[in-house]
Simulated scan of single mutants.
Amino acid sequence: MNKYILFFILVLSGLEVFSQSEYSKTPDSITMFPKKYGAFEHYAFVLNGKVIKQEALLNHPKAELNNVFPYPIRLEGSRYPGAVYFHSEQRFAPPVGYADQPAYFINVRQVSPYQIRLTKMEAYNHISKSTQDTIIDGTQYRGSVHVDSDEDFFADRISLPDFIENYTDLSPEEVIIHWRNTQDEYRNEDDIGTIIGSYFPLYSFKIRDLSVNKIEVDRVRFAERERYVIHIIDDSYRRSLPKGALIFQDPLALNTVYPCYLSDFDPKDEQIFIRPEVNSFTYKGLSFYLKKLSSTTGIPLAKPSSTTKTDSITVQFIVLKDGMITALESPDLDKPGHEVILTAFKKNACGWTPAVQGGRPVLCRRKMVLFYSKDQKGDIRSLDSLKYR
């Protein structure tokens, strides 16, 4: 799962900001950004794998920033507090994260491959995809994925270009974003963060639920012009959503009908809890989940005025460690309409949180009863209530 952590840190969850001195927490305050810009003091500059003097970068007009190693490092026999990596030859360029990805859209608005993985899959209503290549603003994408969601993903967010404009005196053309986590020491390759140098409009981040710990700015003198590297040290990666990472691992192979239901999972040798310390539950509660089932089946929630009789269907399933579900079954499949209801549970399988035992996610078994009203012919006329059993 470590390889996904890098993708999650690219979405900011807030703007509580500190630099070398503490800055205002007011979101619309320009004092959030440092007034003094550093120049990677005492950092090693590494070009095409070799340490160079900082001023020597001016002699390489094709040099581009790879990434920043913000931890003590030993290079060519000397120790540095950090290193800045550049390349001027393609063979030294870093691998592109999410290369050959489709274009992603959440509620019609295009987002980056990183941010689609941070959306709340529990709130999804519909997913569609196309395998046909598409070109958007001059960039070619390998197909497209469109998500319709109850989540107002952009409600508390500010776009990266607006953030730069509102909180700095810099233009996007002058800026390179270095996003990383808040670790004080290097633990793995994901801890160094990543560089965002273009496609800024595809990124946005929250202005509430603050999580940014520090913002620093360094200047780099390239041959063509001076650029500003904004370091955003953020702990939002700790709130990573593994369900989204797993589902979009191979986006064009995504099962858009049952994205969170695993039909071939084998629970052999797995402990399945019945009453874990923290049980699995549905996103926004049972009433919201009942509305999702109603929308999926097309069966209304309001009881009809005609004479009806109350009946029910019992279902059980296993909630996996990542919140997906499997092994859905019911002893009541012989009644009319029950197969449709079971299908609706599969389609809304994204709406579950994992159970927790001893501070770790575990497998658990859940049972539910869905009560409904049926007419004299046995047809289901309304979905009335949903309860855990």
Rank of each mutant, 00 (worst) to 15 (best):
G358M: 15
D322M: 02
D332V: 03
A355W: 04
M368K: 09
C364Y: 02
D332C: 05
K367C: 10
S305L: 14
P361H: 05
V362Q: 09
E339Y: 11
T314Q: 03
Q357F: 12
K346E: 04
T353S: 15
G358H: 14
G359C: 13
A349M: 07
G358W: 14
I318K: 01
R360M: 10
W352M: 02
Q316C: 05
K309L: 09
V315H: 00
G358Y: 13
T310M: 03
S312A: 04
K367W: 10
L363E: 02
T343N: 13
E329R: 13
D334W: 07
K309I: 11
G359N: 14
C364L: 08
T353F: 15
P336L: 12
Q357V: 12
P331N: 05
C350L: 10
R365A: 15
G359R: 12
P336V: 10
K347V: 03
L333E: 14
S306Q: 06
M324H: 00
E339V: 13
T326R: 05
I318P: 01
Q316Y: 03
E339C: 08
K367G: 12
R365W: 14
S306I: 05
S330A: 11
P331H: 04
T307S: 11
T310A: 03
K335S: 10
W352D: 01
A355F: 04
L328K: 08
C350I: 09
I318L: 06
G323W: 10
H338N: 13
S306E: 07
T326S: 08
A355C: 10
K335V: 06
P336R: 07
S312W: 03
N348E: 13
T343W: 10
M368H: 10
T353K: 10
I325Y: 04
P354V: 02
S305V: 14
Q316T: 04
T353L: 15
K367H: 12
R366I: 10
T343Y: 11
G323K: 03
K347S: 06
P331T: 07
I325A: 03
I318Q: 01
P361S: 08
P361Y: 06
P336T: 13
V315Q: 00
G358A: 14
E339F: 11
Q316F: 08
S312N: 05
K347T: 02
D322G: 02
T353Y: 15
V340Y: 05
I313N: 01
P354S: 07
T353E: 15
P331S: 06
R360E: 13
F317Q: 00
K346P: 09
T353Q: 15
I341L: 15
I325F: 05
F317C: 02
A327C: 13
F317N: 00
K335E: 10
I341W: 06
G337P: 09
V356G: 08
L342E: 11
Q316M: 08
Q357E: 15
